[in-house]
Design a protein around this nucleic acid. Structure first.
Lengths: 340, 340
DNA sequence: TTGTAAGCGTTATCAT
DNA sequence: ATGATAACGCTTACAA
């Protein structure tokens, strides 16, 4: 064992192993990489020396010599609901299972986002890139499509970018929520959304409409209220609903839980009971939903991460293939909709 | 621009730049690394060619040639309260500001933990390692102290490991909480903890005792109840408190918010009002605290991340130094303690 | 100020 | 089955 002046172990190298084992680098490399012909005796000797010396292959050298980075780049938006935390766990589990590491980064705005993506790519630090919910436009998509590094999109496809995508069944989730509300006997349901032009919004709205048709209820676009996907937007919309000229809806379906949290607080402050006066259902099933007894559409975050990692790893190399998976959503029933 | 058969851009290399600019690799490298003497004209020419070719230095080669990885390893416990999410953001911001990337990994249990730490080290993929709240024992510490890679500990120091540490002022936080409760006029306060042998627990308990002394209240160790740092443990303890022979405490200070959440739910179910019948204060100020109106001791997660990244980066290389910082905690007052 | 050349630690292609 | 040896793309003394 070599000792540096500081007294710390300086890494053993391949040639240290070669010297000690009296073998060539080729042979040692072969046993280390489980490549073709090596005698059992040689293999054993090498393994012993490796263990003795505490040798661990240098990653940079390996990569440079043609290997893979064994690393997945992951870019999350800095802002946002914090979904990425649970997704990241799923990513990690799946990546670790296949010997991959995660290089995570947060983007701050669109410019930063592009720079980040380009930089991760360019330096060749990653074998594949996973990006979530970003604002990357089509111009960027065209540029990105020239990358050698495969890309996995979480949340929505980007037109013009040949990338794997992991999405959830937004329409089905919304449909489940609305159908459940109809089953409770509520027919006048207001729908609170954020930016209605969003991919997610569009899909969820489609699900709402399908549920209405299935329930034989006339679809009323006037009951759909846009805004932002925030708590504040929820309180504003609910206040408007109460103070406005129209009748108070019997139920409110919020296109995400943040909106629902805002709605719930308005309802409580103004003395309206949930679900007796107004029933409320959210979307996303964030942790707060549990604490508030909010019925909500669950999004399988962990599975999303897992699927993303698998898609990413599966798309690496010449054998790699683009894939896209849609994960199921399900309704979690709590107090706010009228269930026990 | 070279084109691979697939039609994708294959990365330009240093020598491509050299050839195009009619300069030597040394010169180009110098301008790229802002090293000593290069004429303005040369610099400009190189920069133009670099831009033209879309050249980005290959990271593996750079590292192999003696550079740094520019990468911080981050190991979080897979289980746990999800604190790491916010901490990670702080880490990312501080690391990105200094041109470092983050290699994140989750540990599953103690064995996996050690293996993970050793592997990240061994492969030489990281310049420093940041670990949070792990169960690494002293045996491991002795081994780890021989690493060349510096280590930063988040949450608590490990005896025998020369590492930088980022901790919070647990004692002060608990003291603030208890003092506030005393100020409200409550003198009979129960303290709910998890594992009381924990570093955090010990410090928080010390703070409680100090607050009692400062308030002139006799410190009663019998009012300290151990268990686990979970919601379930909180409900169990609160039920015991209600059903037990002793008097119902006027206030409960929970050593973390999970416990407090359990307490709150018991109180609601059993018709006891908060804070009129029993006041409750938690510790950690997790997001649920806001939704529940729970007064709690805030932990500056983002700052922890930032401090950890800075400590890590500051400890790299021969100039590196071990540092340890204690971050302040503060009380966030909401309904549950008796404040508006 | 710029160029030459020797590594850095692996992998992989030849021979042997 | 094993051994030379040439890449891989970059940094950095040392020369010029």
């Amino acid at each position: 064992v070599k000792e540096a002046s500081s007294g710390q172990t300086s890494r053993a190298t391949l040639s240290d192993v070669c010297r000690t084992a009296r073998l060539s680098s080729a042979t040692v490399s072969r046993v280390l990489n489980r490549k073709s012909p090596v005698s059992a005796a040689t293999r054993e000797k090498v393994m012993r020396v490796v263990a003795d010396l505490g040798y661990v292959p240098n990653h940079a050298a390996r990569t440079l010599a043609g290997g893979r980075e064994q690393m997945l780049g992951v870019v999350f938006p800095e802002i946002g609901n914090g979904f990425w935390a649970e997704i990241l766990k799923g990513l990690d589990a799946a990546a670790a299972a296949k010997g991959f590491h995660l290089l995570t980064a947060f983007s701050h705005g669109e410019v930063d986002e592009q720079e980040l993506v380009l930089r991760l790519h360019g330096a060749g630090r990653i074998d594949a890139l996973i990006v979530m919910n970003l604002r990357l436009g089509e111009v960027f998509a065209r540029e990105a499509s020239r990358f050698k590094t495969p890309v996995v999109l979480i949340d929505r496809p980007i037109p013009g970018l040949a990338a794997s995508t992991i999405t959830i069944d937004n329409a089905r989730g919304a449909q489940l929520a609305m159908s459940h509300l109809y089953e409770h006997g509520y027919s006048d349901i207001a729908i609170l959304g954020g930016d209605l032009a969003t991919f997610d919004s569009q899909q969820r709205l489609k699900g709402c409409e399908e549920a209405a048709q299935a329930a034989g209820v006339k679809w009323n676009p006037d009951r759909v209220i846009g805004g932002a996907f925030t708590e504040e937007s929820g309180t504003a919309a609910m206040n408007a609903l109460i103070d406005g000229p129209g009748p108070l809806p019997r139920a409110v379906f919020c296109l995400n839980d943040n909106l629902a949290i805002g709605v719930l607080s308005v309802l409580r402050e103004r003395g309206l009971r949930v679900p007796e006066d107004v029933a409320v259902v959210g979307f996303d099933d964030i942790e707060a939903a549990r604490h508030l007894g909010l019925t909500s559409v669950n999004v399988p975050l962990n599975d999303i991460g897992r699927a993303a990692a698998e898609a990413a790893i599966g798309s690496i190399g010449p054998q790699g293939a683009i894939s896209s998976v849609v994960l199921p959503t399900r309704l979690v029933r709590r107090r706010s909709c009228g269930c026990a």
